[in-house]
Write a protein that binds this DNA or RNA. Structure first.
Lengths: 118, 118
DNA sequence: CCTATAAATAACCACTTAGTTCTGTACCGG
DNA sequence: CCGGTACAGAACTAAGTGGTTATTTATAGG
């Protein structure tokens, strides 16, 4: 539960690649999937997918099962929860920025209304 | 507002380094800071920090001002909001996994209570 | 104008990444 | 036991990362 730097490193790094995000998305909607099934929609070799899976596995984002010669991939969502928690630490901050933006927009609107009267 | 792949790539990549996360944390609590002030607590040269800032800037996480020869760094939280939104798309999923974990723990507790009676 | 300061840029280095192809291994099924 | 299938591993390559030191640019100020 430590939310250590190295964990964040690994999870954010794993999420920084579109192929890996697509893999996660697919696991989320289809459940466990084999490596071959995963590789099929990508214009990419099977070993390339295996490498991506290793990155995801190192971040704890997926786990691997065993079904004969297949190694089904399973989504483990916990690291996602952890990085989300980390990000939510900044929520107040961007909220404040958005609020200020709202203020600016309000003022702008007020000015336009004013201009319309002239 | 497109939440495009390349944006997520850049933001997640920027967040995958502990030095860069520390920079963001410092900006969040101290407000705008110069490069020299930023570099001071790190065992790292000024150009190294400048490089990290360029990564953060490319991801839109910081912007740069101008104060004489200083280039104060300003936190821009919007990309954080965007990746948080992306992550929250998985919230239902990890929630479900946690619920299932709760069930298991409940069952375990029930079994222990049962065992205690014998 | 000259010097000092803040920061960016350049050139370089070791290491990692994301991909490839080829090969090896484990397991199933006839 | 033998051929096929599913995957992992090794070896290679091109490009990117994270750091360094040395240099350059921009600006303030005596």
């Amino acid at each position: 539960m430590a939310l250590e730097a190295a964990e964040l490193d690994a999870t954010f790094h794993a999420l920084s690649d579109p192929t890996r995000r697509a893999i996660l998305a697919r696991l989320a909607q289809e459940g466990d999937v084999t490596v071959m099934e995963l590789a099929e929609p990508f214009a990419m070799s099977q070993p390339a997918i295996s490498k991506h899976l290793k990155v995801l596995e190192k971040a704890g984002l997926v786990s691997r099962g065993r079904d004969a010669q297949r190694r089904p991939v399973h989504l483990e969502a916990q690291p996602l929860a952890e990085v989300t928690d980390w990000l939510l630490g900044y929520r107040q901050f961007w909220q404040a920025q958005f609020d200020r933006l709202d203020d600016v927009l309000d003022q702008l609107q007020a000015l336009e209304k004013q201009a319309g009267k002239n």
